[in-house]
Nucleic acid binder design. Structure first.
Length: 358
DNA sequence: AAGTCGGGGGG
DNA sequence: CCCCCAGACTT
């Protein structure tokens, strides 16, 4: 039976050749498992590793996390991306502490119902923390199964999930679900890699459809290709004495809950010269008495589905204009507590080393 | 079912 | 430059 052979060869590889070491491997505390899995959603292990360690050190228990202020947790998450994960993490920590007496749910369905926990993370926690027989289906598993079993169903189609999940659960070693799940993900990450997989040293050579048919580069199949948008951000950095205007992003858009400066988004690369800035400040805020300290060129940041071009215009004001009073004005020390998008931090860093300016 | 949400690393 | 990553949520 091919399925049993796959599992047998996978477990054998795991026990004898898998040398991948990560701090959450073998962990059984559901809180730590949960934290690591959320951090690792759509994130490479190497990228998430320092964040995991920082979170565990600062919040050793779920009670510690639940009691922490939002801003502090977002600051710790800063730079990791997909910030709704952080919001849901806090929400669920507080829910478990306040409504469930701090006891992490044990049943798969109960775990799945928590905010920020989907099918993958629920299976991972069930298996790693409680050794329950649920197979994880992540990007690694999609790829490994598509190749080994020659599955051409597109992995990014909702309907295909059922096929892969059913197959994954059929392959699961039900005597040791935690070990099996760890094995298949490590295998996908180190041997059956997305590009240039190490087929020459692969333990599944004898049964891998893609390898035997020479179709490794065709699998897995993806069908969606998202168009990229270009967005032009002009940030006004308004300062009055030692205070700077900041604003928390609340709209349904990128970087929700993070902070930024005063933003003007335009359709195209509009040229903000002195004259246009004068006109804008007078018309919008009735500001006349100001000093333009610096106009930066556009910095660029690539996101998955959009390219951000951001420009920074530093404007010193004699006093806080009435029309900008409802914004937050913070000094340097206060600003250090806030989480900013990467492109803003890049500018802020260059700002503190004027010699390095572009 | 399709769109949206970041940032880093590798080819 | 493009693709992918220990996915989940919203519409």
């Amino acid at each position: 039976m091919k399925q049993q052979q796959f599992t047998c060869q996978l477990m054998d590889w795991h026990k004898r050749e898998n040398e991948r070491i990560l701090p959450w491997k073998g962990e059984q505390d559901p809180y730590k498992i949960w934290l690591s899995e959320v951090i690792l959603q759509q994130t490479r292990a190497e990228q998430g590793l320092p964040y995991y360690q920082a979170f565990i050190q600062k919040y050793p228990t779920i009670e510690d996390l639940a009691q922490a202020p939002d801003s502090e947790v977002f600051k710790l998450w800063e730079g990791l991306g997909y910030y709704s994960r952080c919001k849901n993490l806090l929400h669920t920590a507080r829910y478990i502490v306040n409504e469930l007496g701090g006891k992490f749910p044990v049943a798969y369905e109960a775990i799945l119902s928590l905010k920020g926990i989907g099918p993958y993370t629920a299976a991972a926690i069930s298996a790693f923390a409680y050794n329950l027989p649920h197979a994880v289906v992540d990007g690694n598993v999609f790829r490994v199964l598509a190749r080994c079993f020659g599955i051409y169903a597109p992995v990014d189609a909702t309907e295909s999930r059922k096929i892969f999940t059913a197959l994954a659960n059929g392959l699961l070693d039900k005597e040791q679900p935690a070990l099996y799940n760890q094995a298949i993900m490590d295998f996908g990450a180190t041997i059956c890699k997305p590009v240039n997989p190490l087929c020459s040293q692969c333990p599944q050579q004898n049964l891998c459809e893609a390898y035997l048919n020479g179709t490794i580069n065709e699998l897995p199949v993806k069908e969606k290709k998202m168009a990229k948008k270009m967005r032009w951000f002009t940030y006004f950095i308004f300062t009055v004495d030692d205070k700077t205007l900041v604003h928390q992003r609340i709209a349904k858009d990128i970087w929700q809950n993070l902070y930024e400066f005063y933003l003007v988004e335009t359709d195209a690369n509009s040229n903000w010269d002195n004259e246009k800035i004068n006109e804008y400040l007078q018309n919008q805020f009735s500001i006349k008495d100001f000093y333009i300290k610096y106009i930066s060129p556009f910095l660029s940041q690539q996101l998955t589905h959009q390219t951000i071009k951001a420009q920074f215009i530093s404007v010193q004001l004699p006093h806080i204009p009435p029309m900008l009073q409802h914004y937050e004005w913070m000094n340097k020390q206060q600003m250090e507590q806030l989480a900013f998008p990467k492109i803003i931090n890049e500018y802020r860093q260059s700002e503190s080393f004027p010699a390095m300016l572009f």
